[in-house]
Design a protein around this nucleic acid. Structure first.
Lengths: 118, 118
DNA sequence: AAAACCTATTTGCAATGTGAAAATAGTTGA
DNA sequence: TCAACTATTTTCACATTGCAAATAGGTTTT
């Protein structure tokens, strides 16, 4: 493939993995994803809505998700997001990265405790 | 205390905790810290020197570390950093945050695996 | 002795991402 | 009607980053 985009796994992009996971479990629109993120036991802080919407748009452009506009019977129009095959593949790579990150944090704590019990 | 600075625990500031830990173990100057970070088993990626130097200067201003200029017998002058009491206290708070973060990552992986074995 | 290299820190610049707030807009309930 | 809720987008100022270059002392190689 000629133009594979560069994959960024920096931990400040963790929100991407979280969105992909939630979307894999169930397609949603932005507003609902914000609530699901705030309810999830794997997120830390309240997320700023603008950040979520911006990530979703970016991920749409990068074809990690696809979206279509829904003008339902009630409420304002909303954009329904679904994860793509490419997004699922990226999510699976994210889990490897997250396992690593978890190990690194464990090593940090180990070093800290070793130093403080001696 | 009247002007406690706001503490940021966002994971992209993890570098701060890493620097504080290394400095608590042993005072160092920037150049050495870059090497120690790259050797440590709790860091992920290669760090950009500019980032390290900038964080050290910021932490100096915030009195998490203190520094003094060393004109040793060999090599160019260098700034020797030592962690302060305030820096040690912050590091201890960081460990709590890192434990939480580790838990959140574990929860993420649990949710992922639960979804993929059903 | 000049050239190249290592140690050591700082600064400039463009790019990226964020939070906060406001703009937009449809729907529902009092 | 007015307020509240749902839903998304955009603007602005600010923080931070990576990369590169500038600066500079010291050591090693040719």
């Amino acid at each position: 493939m000629s133009h594979l985009q560069k994959i960024t796994f920096s931990s400040d992009r963790l929100i991407e993995a979280q969105l992909l996971l939630l979307l894999q479990i169930k397609s949603s629109h932005g507003y609902e994803l914000i609530q699901r993120l705030n309810d999830a036991d794997f997120t830390i802080e309240e997320v700023d809505p603008a950040t979520i919407y911006r990530h979703l748009r970016r991920m749409d452009k990068e074809e990690l998700v696809k979206s279509h506009w829904e003008t339902g019977p009630s409420g304002p129009g909303r954009r329904l997001y679904t994860v793509t095959k490419s997004g699922e593949e990226l999510l699976s790579q994210w889990t490897i990265n997250i396992k690593q990150q978890k190990e690194k944090l464990a090593n940090f704590l180990k070093t800290y405790e070793q130093y403080h019990n001696s």
